[in-house]
Every structure is written in C-alpha cells, then in structure tokens.
Design a protein around this nucleic acid. Structure first.
Length: 880
RNA sequence: GCGAACUUGGCGGAAUGGUAGACGCAGGAGACUUAAAAUCUCCAGCCCAUAGGGCGUGCGGGUUCGAGUCCCGCAGUUCGCACCA
C-alpha cells in the first residue's frame, strides 16, 4: 500500500495509513491496561458485563465472528465511555469433534490442532482491536478449565442433580459411537454411512427437569430477551396440565410381570375418557417388549418402528400404524374393556409412553380409528349444536363444549368435566391430576476422546463412584491413537485402570466424556474469576453476573441458553454462586451473507476468483462467464466466504468493523459486498482528512462563544448539528440501531467538511474543533484506531480517546434555530413555512395560510379546522 | 399442522401517528486531470409536466384532521416447533 514518492502532489495530504496506525494504538491500549478489570467490580462504579458467544476454534475467524464481536465491542466501548466498569472477556469453546476428525484425517493431535487454531484466531481478534480483557482468556480444553467443570459435576452429583440411567441412543455400529439426532441423515451415520441402530446404553444425565418450573417461570423476568427466544424456550419446556390415569389389564395373561399389570397413561383431556376406544403404547414401551418377546409379528412391527425412528422425514410422512396386542384394559369409569395397540406415533419419552385414544376428540386418534375400524363415540358437543344432528365424520372436535355420552359428566362444560373426572379418578385411586413437561433430562455422555472426562470410577463391587476432589482434574491422556473406530479413551492401554476410591480394589474409569454443551454452560461465570482454584468465587461471580448484554446467533436460542440457565440454577443450589439468571440481556445478531458464484462447469467459485466488469461477471484472468447465484449465508461449501484476515490486510480493521456495522440493522442478515467495504474505506479516509484539516488549520485555544462574543449563525448551526448528532448517536447506540448511528456520523462528517469551506466567522474555529472532537469520540466504538489517531492529532495533550468520557449534548443546543413546518390541506402536503422553535400557533397558522401555493389552493374554500402540531405540521381541513 | 416475524426506490435500509425514501451501495451529469484513479459538485420513486399536479410503503377494508406506523381480513416470504397424547 506504499505510495510512489516520485511524483509528490502537494495538495493531497498523506492518506490514513492503517497498517502502521492500528498496531500502534493497540499497543497503547495494552500499555495503559484500560480493558483490564478486577475480579470484583469496584464499589462506587456501575459494572457492565458484555459477552459475545465464544467461538469454536476452527482455525479461521469468519465474517460472522467479526460482526458478532464488532457489535459487542461497540457496546463495551460505549459503556466504558459512559463510566461503567466493563468486563469484556474472550475464550474458546475448544472441545469437539472437528479436532478428532483432524486427528483421523491428518494425524495431528487434537490438542495441537486446537491450540494452533486458537493462536491463529487470537491474533486475528487482536488485529481487529477489540477491547477485550485478554488476561481472562480461557480454553475449555485445558485442565485448568475442565478440571473445575469436573468439580461442578461432583457438586451436582452430591446435590442429586445427576443420574445414571439407561437410555435409547443412535448407535453407529461402524464408528462405534453415539450420534446426536442431527448427525443421523436418512437413518444413516453422517460420517460412516452405516445404518444407525437404536440401542440402550447407560448414560449420565443432568436432571434439568428438576428445574423445569423455575426455568419456565424465570423467562418472565428476562425482559431484555427477544420475545421469540422466550417463546421458543417456553415451548421447549412444554408445560401441560392433565391427569395420569391407571388402566388395569383385563384378564392379564399368565406370566406377566406384576409391574406390567397396569398401563399408566398421561392425558390433557381426562374429560374425554368416555370417548375412549383403544389404548396405545409406544413401540419402546416395556409392555410392547413383553408382547414382542412372545409374538414374532409384534416383534417385527416393533423392529420396523425402530428402524424408521429418528429421521425427520420419516416422522412427517409415516402413516399412523398399529399392532393389536390382543391384550385389553379395563375402563376406570365403565364396565368395559378396550384393546391395547402398539402404535408408531406414540413416543416413549413423552408422558408415560402410552395414551388412551379418543377418536372423536383427537384427529390423530380419529385417523387411527378409521384405519383399524375402531368405534368413534362423540363426547363433546360443540356450543350451539344439537346432539341429534352432531356427528364426527372426517374431523375430530377438539374445542370446548358440553359433555354427552359421558355418564356422570353429561351436561358439564369441558372445563368442569376435566375437574370432575380428575376428582373421581383420585377418589378411586386410579389416577391424579398432574403437570407434565416436554422437557427431558439432559443426556451428557459422549463416547469421544476430545471432551471433558466424566470424573467417575466404576467398581464392580461399589458401583460408580465419584473421583475424590483431591484427584481432580482427571486429565485426558496425551498418547492416544485414532486408527480404530470407537472411543480412544476406551482403547487406551492404561488410562482407565485405577482403583476404587471406596474399597481400594482395581476399578475402571468412566471413558465417556461430556457433551460439549456442558463446557459452554458456565464459561460466563468462570470469566469472572478465570484463574481461581475453585470453579467460581462468590464475590466475583455475584458481583459481575448476570451478563448485562449477551450477544450471539439465534441458532443457540434453545439448547445453549437453556443449559446455561440450568447450570446457573444448579450452581446456585450447590453454593457456587448466588444468581439465578445468567444473561439479563440477550441480543441475537443476523448472519453475514454473500453472493455465490459458479463457473461454466458448475463449480463454486470464491469471490476473489471472480471479477465484476461492465460486460458482466467473469472468472478473474479469463473471459469465462460466471453465473451469479443467490445471496446466502457465507459457507465453505458454497465458497461464498470472505476471509477477515484478507480484508484487514487490504482495508484495515476499522473499515471491516465499520462496514459490518453500517448498512443493516444488527439483528438482520447483512450482505457483504466488495463495493460496500470500499465505501467504508472511503469514509475512513474522508473522516481522517476532515479532522486532520481541523487539527492543522484551527488553533487548539479557540475560545468558546460567550454572551459578549456570540457565535456567528454559521458557527451556531454547526454547533447545533454537533450536539444534535451526539444525542442521536447516543440514542441509536442505546437502542442497538448501530446502522442509524453510522448514518448520523456520515452526516456530521459532511457537516464538518461543509463548514470548512465557509468563510471564517465568529466562533467557527471553536465550533469546528468541538465538532471534530465529538466526531472522534462518537466514532470510537466502531472505528477505535482511526478515532485514536485523529483524536491525538486534534488534542495531543488529552490522552487516549478510549479513556475519554462520552460526549454530552448540551440541552440548549439541541433545538434548531428555526424549524420547517409542513403545511397540509386535507392531509396532503402543499408547501412548507419556516417558524421559530415553539412559535405560537396563531402566527404559524397565519404564515402557513398565506404561503402562496397554499393560499392559491385554499381560495374559495372554507376552512373548517386548523390543526397545528408545534414544530412539525399544519393541516387545514376544508369544506366546499 | 401449530406459532412467530417480516413485506418501503435498482439494492441494503431510515422514519416518537405529522414533509416517506435519511444514510450507504449501485447509477447519471459535470468539475479537476494529457488520461485514469482519487477527490469535489449536482441529479435521481413512478406518471403528466410550466409554476405545479396525480399516484405511491405487498393487497382489501377501517380508525384519524393526518396511517409505512394503530385495528380487521387476505396474500407472499422467512424462521422456529412439529405424531407432545
């Protein structure tokens, strides 16, 4: 980027050289230590905790990160200027499968791969000049962090929040590992392509359901969360009121286990019990297993259901199918029995894995009844219908009404019948009113190496035992191999062999590691005391938490945020901290998108491989035409990515930051364009020139206007523009409307440049300096390096821009000296008139009425009403 | 199927119920230059056109002196959840 020096142009000042300027100010901030904060927020200063979701160290920062962290940095720098003590830390969500895949594919150890990626990404973040407190950096893959996580696990275990139980998992028989639902594609493992089996495994669970009520109730207090995220969590938790009903088997077959003598059912509609025509159980229900063990056809049906199990399409398209077990249950209220079917639409993990079918009141039950010609008994009469001409044909009636064909419930409203039925069930001892939750406990066992070891020792005599606290952390062994499928920890020759802490006999370590969502469930708390010997320190955690502003992608709206809310409660219960909600404010930013390109052979092309010319888009260096595809989220597979490092090299960090903040509101997706970033770079140069010109041509000692020495109208106008912009930018930043703040700063820059061209008038030097200073400080959250550079040139003795207080708008300069009033006739704009601020209605109306065009159009009309909105508008309502 | 959000120029978008289209991108004209780049100035919703007028914020209604904004209905797009008993 060096300029040729052979042809000096005297009138053109040296352009802003970000290459030398940016590192200089980064060093200055570093030296001043202004982003470092104490573990306990200082008394007498308000605290503010800004946190962006920490990245997975994939190796390269992408534009989505830049946008996320630029947004957070604007908030952090702004709040700092407003006098807050700001905690703004950064770390790495460093465990996960990609590291193991790299190990398998390239033979790099996951640890080396991860640490190298962290180093590279840290460098990029630092080049972007984010105001981060780097002393607090943490990486979840280091024993210092995950050892404390093991401690938390043991705390939770002691508090009864951890359980070990059998659960169904997606098992990849080739890779010998458990897969998450989203890793199963069309019933096959995403990596091995092998058909996935459903298998029961012993797994560790966090009892998140223990907090279901509190997690739901707590949502109300999260006023600074997007409504839709709260709604998503609410539905995920899924509270529903109903009843559990026990159906005893009618003539139970010989040899049936006694605990299978009755089937427990959950229903939200106990009022419709008289409409029952069958009972359906999940294919995984214990009774189904008992039947399958004795009936090959049943076994075949169950196996088939299991095969179709998880895939989303399978669920969508699968027709309702069932298998009649031949067993029957007695109805609690009627002297009748009904058949038990195994049905493919009954889920084992919702409710009790069994339901009673009331075809007249549930569409799915009706479809099922039609398919297998089961009876349909209407029990709810819709309001306004007569029983005689009401029949259920193709659609069930799910609404409220009055009860019919329902014995002692007849005539009651749906609501009353529900209460009455529950009361009767409870009196008979065959059921009770219950609240059911959709939320399930969180299975945290993963058969993988690159994760936090679960600190448990299995002893054949004593059962699973917690690793004693003084033996923590349980560290991952370094010497592992990835040459065979399955969990390397399990294959390790010696690692798992140890002794039982209880009886001292040989025992084996748990070889499963934690789900990586565990790692990110408490990092925000660890940041408050990242080097402490305990997971958290009360004064630090309670002092800094909750996070005042959390920023990240909407993709974490449910799982991550729910898990973090669970952890916070669990940590409170175990005495690790004393807050209930981790994130007081949440902002979900949009994605960064880009055009996609294909060459004539249909291969995706990177943006730097194509060239936009007047004749169209071509492949760079050729004449080959390029097809421009949709604008979509940047992704490696579409090759529509732009690397932040390349942009920083070409345009500088400030330009990259400014552009990602400029055009689109932060919550929406933004499109990265070459011309857009070039425009941002242009603005940076323009601002630099404008402020440098002020610094060089106006004396720093320029006096403020006084009563005796008033400013000229031009200077006064500039001052008013400055102060109104201060107010507007402040308001915009408070409301996350960063794009609007950027627009106002463009305007103020133009105003400053325009003022330069005007003849010098009284007070103009002061007005210019005041404007330039404000401009520096208002731009600083977005373009911190450039702001420092121009601030230092303008005010060499004032220290760092990053340490200046936020500019204050002077109240008496917020109003303009005159206002333009729109004049309407019957709501249509017919002209404008000038008025003094807050001028009397009478004089404004008179002037408006005599405005030539208005007067012309009012001629011959009778004004029936004159509307005057001060400083804004006048409207004449006419008749005739 | 259920729920939510969104719909404004060529594009991204702005607008406490009060001059719709700020600001930016792309575009046009001009200045400077031997030329280009850079920079600067001006133009720019559509239609008729002379001041000026008509029509314009997905579509149809409503409330109001006045609606992009509030209310009702419809359409489209996007997202989330989805056999939840």
């Amino acid at each position: 980027m060096s300029q040729p020096s052979s042809t000096p142009v005297s009138t053109t000042p040296a352009p802003y050289d970000f290459h030398t300027v940016e590192p200089r100010w980064q060093a200055a901030w570093d030296e001043a230590g202004i982003f470092t904060v104490p573990d306990v927020p200082p008394a007498g200063q308000p605290k503010y905790y800004v946190l962006e979701m920490f990245p997975y160290p994939s190796g390269q920062l992408h534009m989505g990160h830049v946008r996320n962290y630029a947004l957070g940095d604007v908030i952090a720098r702004y709040k700092r200027a407003r006098g807050y003590c700001v905690l703004h830390p950064m770390g790495w969500d460093a465990f996960g499968l990609p590291a193991e895949n790299a190990a398998r594919e390239r033979g790099v150890h996951p640890r080396e791969w991860t640490l190298a990626n962290i180093a590279a990404m840290r460098t990029t973040l630092q080049r972007l000049g984010f105001s981060l407190n780097w002393d607090r950096e943490i990486a979840t893959c280091l024993p210092d962090y995950y050892g404390k996580q093991q401690q938390l696990f043991l705390d939770f275990l002691g508090a009864g929040l951890v359980e070990r139980r059998e659960s169904w998992v997606n098992w990849d028989p080739v890779d010998q590992t458990v897969l998450a639902n989203e890793q199963v594609v069309d019933g096959k493992g995403w990596r091995s392509g092998a058909p996935i089996e459903k298998k029961q495994l012993s797994q560790w669970f966090f009892k998140i359901t223990a907090f279901a009520d509190d997690l739901l109730g707590g949502l109300d207090s999260l006023e600074r969360w997007p409504e839709r995220v709260r709604t998503m969590q609410e539905r995920w938790i899924g509270r529903s009121e109903g009843a559990k009903v026990i159906f005893n088997l009618h003539q139970p077959p010989a040899g049936l286990d006694t605990d299978l003598n009755a089937v427990e059912v959950f229903t939200t509609r106990p009022d419709t019990l008289f409409g029952m025509s069958f009972l359906a159980i999940a294919p995984d229900h214990p009774l189904a297993a008992w039947v399958a063990a004795r009936n090959p056809q049943a076994a075949e049906f169950v196996a088939e259901c299991r095969r179709l199990g998880t895939s989303v399409e399978a669920v969508e398209t699968a027709e309702k199918r069932g298998f009649d077990t031949g067993l029957r249950v007695n109805h609690p209220f009627l002297d009748q029995s009904f058949p038990i079917w195994i049905a493919n639409f009954v889920l084992m993990d919702y409710g009790t894995g069994a339901l009673f079918g009331c075809p007249s009141g549930d569409q799915r039950d009706l479809d099922f009844a039609h398919k297998y010609t089961l009876p349909v008994v209407p029990v709810v009469l819709p309001p306004g219908k007569a029983e005689a001409d009401f029949a259920i044909t193709t659609s069930a009636f799910t609404g409220d009404g009055s009860m019919i064909n329902s014995g002692f419930l007849d005539g009651l409203s749906t609501q009353d019948a529900r209460r009455e039925a529950i009361a009767r069930l409870e009196a008979m001892g065959v059921g009770q009113g219950v609240v059911n939750w959709r939320l399930r406990d969180w299975g945290i066992s993963r058969q993988r190496y690159w994760g936090c070891p679960i600190p448990i020792i299995h002893c054949t005599e004593c059962g699973p035992q917690p690793v004693p606290a003084d033996q923590l952390p349980v560290e991952l062994p370094e010497d592992v191999t990835f040459d065979k499928p399955g969990n390397p920890l399990d294959h390790h020759p010696s690692w798992k062999h140890t002794t039982c802490p209880c009886c001292g006999k040989p025992a084996t370590r748990e070889t499963d590691t934690f789900d990586t969502f565990v790692d990110s469930s408490w990092y925000f708390a660890r940041f408050t005391a990242p080097h402490a010997a305990t997971p958290t320190v009360h004064d630090a955690a309670d002092g800094w938490l909750a996070v005042d502003q959390y920023i990240g992608g909407i993709e974490h709206a449910i799982l991550h945020l729910l898990y973090a809310r669970f952890f916070t409660r669990a940590m409170r219960k175990t005495g690790n901290l004393d807050v209930s909600e981790p994130f007081a404010g949440l902002f979900t930013q949009g994605m960064v998108s880009h055009e996609s390109y294909k060459d004539s052979a249909g291969n995706w092309l990177y943006p730097e491989e194509v060239e936009h010319t007047a004749q169209g888009v071509i492949k760079r260096g050729t004449t080959e035409p390029v097809t421009v595809g949709r604008v979509e989220k940047m992704s490696k597979s579409k090759r529509n990515t732009v690397a932040p490092v390349a942009i920083i090299e070409r345009f500088g960090a400030d330009t990259a930051r400014w552009f990602v903040l400029s055009d689109s509101p932060p919550e929406r997706d933004m499109e990265w364009t070459e011309s857009g970033v070039a425009g941002a770079a242009r603005f940076a140069q323009r601002l630099f020139r404008a402020v440098c010109a002020i610094a060089e041509t106006t004396p720093a000692t320029a006096a403020a206007p006084t009563q005796d020495n008033p400013a000229s109208p031009q200077a006064d106008t500039l001052r008013r523009t400055t102060h109104r912009t201060i107010a507007a930018v402040t308001e915009a930043l408070e409301g996350f409307a960063i794009n609007v703040a950027v627009a106002r700063l463009h305007e103020l820059t133009s105003a400053l440049i325009d003022a330069e061209k005007q003849a010098d008038t009284a007070g103009m030097d002061f007005a210019r300096r005041e404007c330039a200073r404000a401009l520096c400080l208002l731009c600083a959250p977005m373009m911190p390096h450039l702001a420092e550079e121009i601030f230092s040139r303008l005010n060499p003795a004032d220290g760092l821009a990053a340490q200046q207080p936020w500019p204050q708008a002077e109240a008496d300069l917020l109003a303009a000296t005159s206002v333009t009033i729109a004049v309407q006739i019957m709501g249509k704009l017919r002209g404008t008139v000038e008025a003094e601020p807050d001028e009397e209605a009478a004089t404004v109306l008179a002037r408006a009425e005599s405005e030539p065009n208005v007067a012309r159009l009012l001629e011959g009309k009778r004004i029936v009403k004159r509307v005057h909105v001060p400083n804004r508008i006048v409207n004449f309502v006419t008749a005739g």
